[in-house]
Simulated scan of single mutants.
Amino acid sequence: MLHSIAFIIPFGDSVRPFLHRLRGVKIGKNVWISKFVYIDDNHPECVEIGDNSTIGLRTTIFTHTYFGKRQKHNPNKVVIGKNVYVGPHCLILPNVTIGDNSVIKGGTVVTRNVPPNTLYGMPNAEPLATVTVPLTYEHGYEEFVKGLRPIRKKNNNQKDKN
Rank of each mutant, 00 (worst) to 15 (best):
N95W: 01
N95D: 14
T97G: 06
I98G: 05
I98F: 04
I98D: 04
I98N: 04
I98C: 06
I98P: 03
G99A: 08
G99H: 08
D100K: 06
D100L: 09
D100F: 08
D100Q: 07
N101M: 01
N101T: 02
N101V: 03
S102V: 14
S102C: 14
V103M: 12
V103L: 14
I104C: 01
I104E: 01
I104R: 01
K105Q: 01
K105V: 00
K105I: 00
K105H: 00
K105G: 00
K105W: 00
G106V: 00
G107M: 02
G107N: 02
G107S: 04
G107C: 05
V109E: 08
V110I: 07
V110Y: 02
V110E: 01
V110F: 04
T111Q: 04
T111H: 06
T111K: 11
T111I: 05
T111W: 00
T111L: 06
R112H: 12
N113A: 07
N113K: 11
N113W: 07
N113I: 04
N113M: 07
N113P: 03
P115C: 11
P115S: 15
P116L: 04
P116N: 08
N117W: 02
N117S: 09
N117K: 09
N117A: 03
T118L: 09
T118H: 10
T118E: 11
T118I: 08
L119F: 14
L119Q: 04
L119R: 10
L119A: 02
L119D: 02
L119H: 09
Y120S: 10
Y120F: 15
Y120L: 03
Y120W: 14
Y120D: 03
G121Q: 05
G121L: 08
M122V: 01
M122L: 03
P123K: 15
P123R: 15
P123Q: 15
N124M: 08
N124L: 11
A125R: 14
A125Y: 11
A125F: 11
A125T: 13
E126M: 12
E126G: 10
E126V: 12
P127I: 08
P127C: 04
A129M: 08
A129G: 10
A129H: 15
T130Q: 02
T130F: 01
T130R: 05
V131N: 13
V131H: 12
V131D: 13
V131K: 12
T132M: 07
T132I: 06
T132K: 13
T132L: 10
T132E: 12
T132W: 05
V133H: 07
V133Q: 08
V133L: 09
P134E: 14
P134L: 12
P134N: 13
P134R: 12
